[in-house]
């Protein structure tokens, strides 16, 4: 029979291959990206964001960054709310990735102010000294092509206005990239929903710590705060920190929960212990460097 008949063998092999294909690859189209999957608030990309996405694809950012948060405790703590199918309905192609050489970016939108991204893309190592991410400052040298972007929007069937296309004139690839990164995962109000509220009285556990102990916590500041507030707390993307008169408890709360509208990320995943250390370090810092 089929041991002697190559055509029959080919037909049977095709049937064998098609069973799993139809069940696990074709059938899911009946459930995925249907009305039941839709999430209110998830919108198509704007012209600028879509172009940023295409730059992200062109330069292979997906080789090092994933864009899907799994429903696992450490993952949700580190990146934010887990990803939902309905959030990706406008993604052609999907960009979930398969390797996290760098962190996941699915919930990056709104975490930092634009200025942070411009500075970071320009020179990642100026903010995160030991990173292996290459510099992408050269994106600023490439002007956008509004006609081409308009064509892309037409093909994708995304809504746009002529003003929107006109506004692309004079913008560069870096602007597009930052616009895209700020859109990531921000269509659902997960940040507000998961905002930490501090219950009960806060008490500084390191109130009696000595100067030498406190200055030993400098690395925490360098790793987590210096990129925005400057190595001497002189301010840069974020405000200057010297001389503000916040109480320990208020400063702790700002660091712990962040200021969503002000571009200050929450540092709750550092844990209360480290956040208290940062609070004390910042409170005791003096401009002359003498601590």
């Amino acid at each position: 029979m089929w041991e002697r008949k190559p055509v029959l063998l080919c037909v049977l092999a095709t049937v064998a291959i098609m069973v799993g294909t139809i069940i696990t690859m074709v059938l899911p189209f009946a459930w995925v990206n249907t009305e039941a999957d839709r999430i209110e608030g998830v919108t198509p990309y704007t012209a600028l964001q879509q172009e940023g996405r295409d730059v992200y694809i062109r330069d292979g950012c997906n080789n090092c960054h994933t864009q899907t948060v799994r429903p696992l405790v450490p993952e949700v703590l580190r990146y934010g709310d887990y990803s939902k199918s309905g959030e990706f309905v406008y993604d052609r192609p999907f960009l979930w990735g398969s390797k996290r050489t760098g962190p996941d970016l699915a919930r990056l939108g709104g975490k930092y102010p634009d200025a942070w991204h411009y500075k970071h893309m320009e020179s990642p190592r100026s903010m995160v000294p030991k990173t292996n991410m290459p510099d992408y400052g050269w994106l600023s040298d490439n002007q956008l092509d509004p006609q081409m972007i308009q064509r892309k929007m037409d093909v994708l069937g995304f809504p746009y206005t002529t003003e929107e296309i006109k506004a692309l004139e004079g913008k560069n690839e870096m602007d597009a990239m930052v616009a895209y990164l700020q859109k990531l995962g921000s269509d659902i109000p997960w940040r507000e929903a998961t905002e930490t509220t501090i219950v009960g009285d806060l008490k500084n556990p390191f109130i009696d710590a000595g100067q030498t102990t406190i200055s030993g916590w400098a690395s925490l500041y360098v790793e987590n705060c210096a990129a925005c507030h400057g190595p001497q707390m002189e301010g840069d993307i974020g405000p200057e920190l010297i001389g503000d008169d916040y109480d320990d408890e208020i400063l702790f709360e700002i660091i712990y929960t962040g200021i969503a509208d002000g571009g200050m990320p929450s540092f709750s995943n550092l844990g209360t212990d480290k956040v208290w250390k940062l609070t004390n370090y910042i409170r005791h810092y003096k401009t002359d460097g003498s601590q």
Partner: peptide, 12 residues
């Protein structure tokens, strides 16, 4: 642009 979107695209 891929003929499939998001989760479908990932599965394909």
């Amino acid at each position: 642009y891929s003929a499939y979107a998001g989760t479908n695209d990932a599965n394909v």
